[in-house]
Amino acid sequence: MDKNLDRLNVYASRLISQKEYFVPGHRACQGCAEALALRLVAKALGRNNVIASATGCMEIVSSPLPLTSWNVPWIHVAFENAAAVASGIEAGLKVLMRKGRIPPKRINVMAMAGDGGTSDIGLQALSGAMERGHDFIYVCFDNEAYMNTGIQRSSSTPFGASTTTSPAGSVVPGQTTWKKNMPEIAVAHNIPYVATACSSYPFDLMEKVKKAAAIEGPAYIHILSVCPTGWRLPPQMAIHAGRLAVETGMFPLYEVEQGRYHLNIDLSELRPIEEYLKIQGRFRHLTPEMIEQIQQRVGEEYEKLKKKVRMTNEGQE
């Protein structure tokens, strides 16, 4: 118990830094929880931070050409190479510091992309950067489809969701494949830190980002960002939906430090998945059998995760 005491923090929303590194005036939709997640990430990382951003919602809303919402160095790169550019920045900074061109200090390098830019298009660049062991943070803002081009399915779209390229009809009931387990792919690279977070749990999210920044070597954070437009939700429900995703077990919050799993929100009993599905228009067409199928799969995945937590922590406590 004693060794975990340093993890105990007292939180109050009004005590955190009021300095914003992602400024207002960005053009995200009403109630965009992805913009909120980005704001919290930028706040947690602070000033000494260089960001490489892949194409996606957050690139478009934050940098319409003569304007930028960023108070830190930020570069927009193509869809597939955010991680490659971030590794270049990290290597460049290292060389410049070694040659004495810039004073040596700790500068965080962050790559950010949406779920399409991470699990579909940018996967090989990300895999390469994690394998080479660059000291950077990769943040994936997962809103479960290609939202900026108008809600097309990605490999991160959950089963049953209706999008414009997986429309629900009488023959095909929306997305037919299950969500790609991107954090597990990152874990498989044996990197020092992998975590999942959600903007509905802001302190947990900020703590994970700070931890990722402090750790040497690659760190991967997967953030579930509710998209009211694409999920067909009223905008004020964005935070509530994120909370439900965690409480139903659809998106468990956990972190993997040096291969050891830790569940951040450990629920003894999950809420029925229906509560999460029924508030979203993209799941409107689901039949009770499909809901039962999703419930079963979510239960299995959660059990699998709990098993990993038990296995990797055996004999450690």
Partner: peptide, 23 residues
Amino acid sequence: ITWKELNVGCVIDEPGNAAAYRT
């Protein structure tokens, strides 16, 4: 603002200037 006033490489040298935009 016209294209003639933009920086080469579309570099924006004024951080956080989106704050002037009214949402």
